[in-house]
């Protein structure tokens, strides 16, 4: 079944301006982070987009969409009630089809020519299951991501059957619960900010919201529950994610984009020059 819709969350009140930051894309064109995210999804066959934003952000976001603006809907999350709740806001838009979910503060750079979103959608379609993109991540960065535990499924792709999902686990919990045979010690499979999810997720979110209506609704607990009910996979993408909300995240993302694009040599030259001048300066 083709995946035509993408749900993008950008409603974190503490990071509401991140998707609006301007970067140079791989072709050296200035674009907002949001536009880069939308274009990646569009390149993977997505036709309709929905961005969940904070109330009052719609105008600014609309301006940042670039040429894809006509295909983008905005839904305001009335109050900040958690990541899972933001997803739940997109339920009507998604309908009863599987959808691509991206986060507004992550940019992805593929290793090869196939974009990260394309790789994920291809796997999800061929496996006919919910699939989250993951990246082996050092335990020191566990505080920034959701992480999974599970086992490797044989085959051509680095695909894992998920049995546990924890949001920003401590290394103590990760070591005990997020066991993935074959992974290097001290590394965990952390989310990439890219998922293909089925509409059954909304039912789980509903249940969890109903069970604790006063609490912030997370996505990871719902994904953990999903793993217990359905075949839910993780796919180690051939690419890297860049969290532009992390310290120096925007800089890193820019460098990654530039070093994998048209202006690679120019940026490298500037970097070397910078290093020669500043490297030994405290």
């Amino acid at each position: 079944m083709p995946i035509r819709k993408a749900l993008i969350t950008a409603a974190n009140p503490r990071q509401r301006t991140l998707p609006l930051q301007t970067l140079m894309d791989q072709n050296g064109d200035p674009k907002s982070a949001l536009q880069i995210v939308l274009e990646e999804a569009a390149g993977a066959g997505i036709e309709e987009f929905c961005v969940v934003v904070c109330p009052g952000d719609k105008t600014a976001y609309a301006e940042a969409c670039g040429a894809l603006r006509p295909r983008v809907r905005f839904i305001a999350q009335p109050t900040a009630r958690g990541y899972g709740h933001a997803i739940l806001c997109g339920r009507e838009f998604v309908g009863d089809q599987p959808f691509l979910h991206l986060v507004g503060d992550h940019l992805h750079v593929a290793q090869g020519t196939t974009s990260c979103a394309r790789q994920l959608i291809d796997i999800a379609v061929s496996e006919n299951a919910s699939v989250s993109a993951v990246q082996p991540t050092r335990e020191s960065q566990l505080t920034s991501y959701g992480a999974i535990g599970g086992k490797l499924i044989g085959g051509d792709h680095p695909l894992y059957q998920i049995d546990t999902v924890l949001e920003k686990p401590t290394p103590t919990a990760a070591e005990q619960q997020l066991i993935v045979p074959g992974l290097r010690a001290g590394f965990y499979l952390c989310f990439f900010g890219l998922h293909v999810l089925g509409p059954d997720l909304f039912a789980i979110l509903d249940e969890q919201h109903a069970a604790a209506p006063d609490q912030s609704l997370g996505l990871s607990p719902a994904l953990h529950a999903l793993a217990a009910r359905r075949r839910y996979l993780a796919f180690s993408i051939a690419g890297r994610r860049y969290d532009i909300g992390a310290p120096y995240g925007l800089l890193n993302a820019q460098l990654a984009l530039s070093l994998s694009g048209r202006d690679r040599d120019r940026v490298l030259t500037q970097l070397v020059e910078l290093l020669s001048v500043r490297a030994d300066t405290p």
Partner: peptide
Amino acid sequence: TRGNAWMFRLGHPLDQPLR
């Protein structure tokens, strides 16, 4: 023992994952 091992791998303040 699982849950203890990570502490022996950590060698730099920036690697500290606890908050």
